[in-house]
Write a protein that binds this DNA or RNA. Sequence first.
DNA 1: AAGCGGCGACTGGTATGGTAGTATGGGGAA
DNA 2: TTCCCCATACTACCATACCAGTCGCCGCTT
Lengths: 241, 241
Amino acid sequence: MPPQRDRVLSRIEAGLDEPIARRVFRELRTAIVTMRIRPGEAVSEQDVADQLGVSRQPVREAFIKLREAGLVSIRPQRGTFVVKISVRQVFDARFVREALELAVVRRAVAELKAADITLLRSNLDEQTAAAADKDPGRFLDLDEAFHRTIALQVGCEHAWRVVEDTKAQMDRVRYLSLADATPVPRLIAQHVAIVDAIEARDVEAAESAVRLHLREILTSLPELATRFPDLFTDDTPANLR
Amino acid sequence: MPPQRDRVLSRIEAGLDEPIARRVFRELRTAIVTMRIRPGEAVSEQDVADQLGVSRQPVREAFIKLREAGLVSIRPQRGTFVVKISVRQVFDARFVREALELAVVRRAVAELKAADITLLRSNLDEQTAAAADKDPGRFLDLDEAFHRTIALQVGCEHAWRVVEDTKAQMDRVRYLSLADATPVPRLIAQHVAIVDAIEARDVEAAESAVRLHLREILTSLPELATRFPDLFTDDTPANLR
DNA sequence: AAGCGGCGACTGGTATGGTAGTATGGGGAA
DNA sequence: TTCCCCATACTACCATACCAGTCGCCGCTT
């Protein structure tokens, strides 16, 4: 008898007219980011289709999108596997994100209106409230919203979409460090510094504030990699795919 | 009788073990970028599948990737259409590309070895040769290789992949301006300026050289939009820079 | 002649069938 | 006991079938 994989996915309810493939993708993406499906684990079209109550077709399309997000590795005639967290890939994603958010914040310094900044400040207030309530999940959402809001305020919808596509790797790490009581106050202070620099129209300060903030992940990463060795690949050599 | 669309795609020959879906994607991508399939035109899964001699399945997957590249618009139960060139989308793609290549060139200034620079110089020589031979197609390839080489030399494979995914929009414009005898010598001079700045370890100069170069497309864009109005959607004004 | 309504031929989305290739485990040979 | 080999049970890829919407053409009505 096969190993009888655990049920970690809940059946997709019919009704909404959002394409099934997209829902399958989102379901799988969050399942992977939150480690309900662990790195290294195998997922199969048939198995996922059965658990979700859909056919293999949309599952296959979801797999393809997950591969492009760097979350799974599809090996023909072999199987599809959730890739382990690769320090290298997290670095690469972080590099891209930093490059884009630097460009965004440069625009923000030049273009943001007072009303925009007020909106950001209110988001910051909510962040401190979430921190006081010890609600890290809510803080994560506000954090994401903070960065997204800046991008959208300066008309960088496309750039933000690229960031979203890229940062799946980083999200898994952030989820890991969520339990650790990450220094949320420090992150909030960094956010405040970014807004302050934007308001002061100080490009240099804004750039370095963003840099500092987005490099925060690098400090926790090595520790996490040694603490959860089974979740990471030791990608020193040129590993095969 | 249906309009009997022209055959613009050549049958895919069996044999190679590259996945069919990928080949279909590349075939369609180049057909769109080179305007063999014109903006606004409809493409159908069934029609493409027949022309290429494959089933609808891989064609469908190719369509999805084309949508993510921003080249087609899939409207369920209606059809799939090659999107017209949108000045806004070209701007957005250019913005992302500039952000990433700026980050790459910063690394290049810090990390490139003499051997790397020699390699770039030889590419530049080939560019001048191609210009002398009036071979714009070859120049386009060398241009692409130039930018890609810098990215790979500093270990930014992932960032370059993001650029590739994003710049499809720009490629159509470049193809349009290819006939125009674009000022190839000027582009080569800009490339030389980038390499010079890298070799001189001058970050400021390198950044502004890249900026200047990647903003070149903005000069030809308005003229092209007015000369080929049927290829563009009219969504220009409002945004500057 | 003009307007409108319904039928039919498309579309992409989903489900299912068929195939080649690969990991695996157990039994037979050394 | 150990090692090899092959049957078997998977895998993802490709092809095909079915479905529900959409839209245009054509004939009927006024």
